[in-house]
Simulated scan of single mutants.
Amino acid sequence: MYICPVCKRSDRTTALSTYWRALPADRRAGVPHLARPALHDERWAAPLGLLTLGCALLLSEAWLGLVGVAGGGVWLVSLRDKVTHAARCRADWHRKQFCRRCHHDFLP
């Protein structure tokens, strides 16, 4: 058992994922802040296409290829960071505990 940092009790703590699954659907709508973070369906084709087009333009010695390579690279890095952040949020959600006494969610 984990001790709640707010009420300093351990007798009513449970895993947040277990508490969320036990809630009826109508009660889940009232506590959206406890919901599992959504997986974002990221599209990788557009930034990869821009990067490929930029490389092709660079090979044909067009200055616009540099813009395409830079734009595609920045887009891919930002997309990777967004996916990493979403995965970290989901992992934290699975580790969180919930206190049924004071209705506080916390990381152990």
Rank of each mutant, 00 (worst) to 15 (best):
A62N: 12
R95Y: 08
A22F: 13
S60M: 09
R43I: 13
H103R: 03
H33M: 02
E42P: 04
V83D: 14
R88K: 12
D81W: 11
P47T: 06
C7T: 02
L59E: 02
R100M: 08
H85Q: 12
R80A: 06
C4Q: 04
K82Q: 11
R95T: 06
R100G: 13
C89A: 12
L64A: 15
G73D: 08
C55P: 01
G71F: 04
A91D: 14
H103P: 02
R88A: 12
A45L: 11
L51T: 02
V31P: 01
R28S: 05
G68Y: 02
Q97M: 07
L39T: 14
K96T: 04
G30W: 01
R27D: 12
K96S: 09
L53Q: 02
V6P: 03
L57I: 00
Y2E: 15
L48V: 12
M1F: 05
K82P: 01
A35V: 06
V67L: 05
E42Y: 14
T14C: 12
A22N: 15
C4M: 13
L48A: 10
S78H: 09
H85G: 04
A62I: 03
T14F: 01
L51C: 03
P47W: 08
A91R: 15
P47M: 04
R43E: 06
R88M: 07
W44V: 05
A38G: 15
S10N: 15
W44N: 01
L48E: 00
Y2M: 12
P47S: 07
L53C: 06
G68P: 02
K82G: 07
R21I: 05
V74P: 01
L59K: 03
L66H: 11
A15L: 10
A87G: 11
A87P: 05
V77L: 08
I3E: 15
T13H: 03
V77Q: 06
T14L: 12
D41S: 13
C4D: 05
Q97R: 08
L58Q: 00
F98G: 05
D41E: 13
R80S: 11
G30F: 03
Y19S: 10
W93L: 06
A70F: 02
L50T: 00
L66T: 03
H94G: 09
D41L: 14
V83C: 05
L48Y: 03
C4S: 09
T52V: 15
R28T: 07
A56P: 04
K82A: 10
R100N: 12
P47C: 10
H85S: 03
K96R: 14
H104E: 09
P32C: 04
L34R: 08
W63C: 04
A35W: 11
G73L: 03
W93H: 08
V83F: 10
H33Y: 05
A29H: 06
H104K: 01
F98M: 03
W63A: 10
A46D: 08
H104G: 02
G73Q: 06
W63P: 02
A35L: 04
G49M: 13
V74A: 10
L16E: 10
G54A: 10
G54N: 06
A46H: 07
H104Q: 07
